[in-house]
Amino acid sequence: MLPWIEIDTGPVPGCEAPLRLMQRGQEFSIFAGSNELMNSFRGGSEEALAVLACERLAGMRAPRILIGGLGMGFTLRAALASLGPDAHVAVAELVPKVIAWAKGPLAGVFKGCLDDPRVALHEADVNRLIQSGAGAWDAILLDVDNGPEGLTRRENDRLYDSWGVKRALWALSPQGVLGVWSGGPDRKFKARLQNGGFAVDEVRPRSGGRRGARHVVWLASRPNQAAVLAGRAPGR
């Protein structure tokens, strides 16, 4: 078997350990320390995050999608394939090197999706875009860190705590959906979603499509399609 070769490293704001881009033949992987965060051969669950969420937007005109975490582009590509030509997809990526890798050594993995006119790529914390306005998004898809139990950056916890859930609800349109990817189950986070006013479905897609480890995708929406909450975003 071919050995892994380290291609590059990139600092993560607010974190001591850098991300490492590794390659083995045609396979790429991104590690945080000794933990593999993503692999170019195993993106089935990240694709499912987008497909399942976009199914709930079927028939919506000019949907506005926010994706938190660029990764290797699996969620972005699946969203673009599921949405019509009038969609707007904003992607927030905090780590500059992840963006550079997407345009460099991982360009073959991304397959030109960053050049799609529907896409706006932001080098920013997704939390800032979530707070851009009440009802600003029809879908918020979070694939940040390793899910609610973060590995790389403590500040990511604010996306998943009680205030983070409230901010997401405030930022979604009445028929909007919050999709969250996680490396494993988290009953406390699911309960926070439910206690925060969401109706929640939990799906466990495999990382390799029909094979591979099972990950978790939560799909959360308002139970009664209530009006968008007014006022400013809760909690800063």
Score class of each variant (00 low, 15 high):
185 P>G: 09
105 P>V: 13
16 E>Q: 13
135 G>W: 03
22 M>I: 09
217 V>C: 13
212 G>V: 04
191 A>K: 15
104 G>A: 14
180 V>C: 12
188 K>C: 14
10 G>I: 02
5 I>A: 12
39 N>D: 01
40 S>G: 05
25 G>L: 04
85 P>D: 10
115 D>W: 01
114 L>C: 06
70 L>T: 06
7 I>T: 02
206 R>S: 07
56 R>Q: 13
151 L>W: 14
65 I>E: 01
3 P>W: 08
128 R>C: 06
202 E>M: 15
101 W>N: 06
162 S>W: 00
152 T>C: 14
90 A>D: 14
52 L>I: 00
196 G>H: 04
226 A>K: 10
116 D>W: 07
143 D>R: 10
224 N>P: 00
236 R>I: 02
32 A>F: 15
153 R>Q: 09
65 I>G: 03
47 E>A: 15
152 T>F: 15
165 V>E: 05
43 G>H: 02
230 A>D: 09
157 D>C: 02
181 W>P: 02
164 G>H: 06
145 D>Q: 12
163 W>G: 08
218 W>H: 05
137 W>F: 07
93 E>K: 12
46 E>Q: 14
221 S>C: 10
65 I>M: 05
215 H>N: 14
81 A>S: 08
18 P>T: 08
66 L>W: 01
162 S>N: 07
169 L>A: 11
126 V>K: 09
118 R>W: 11
69 G>E: 00
111 K>S: 14
86 D>Q: 09
185 P>Q: 08
150 G>L: 14
218 W>Q: 03
7 I>E: 03
19 L>R: 11
116 D>L: 06
222 R>V: 03
159 L>S: 09
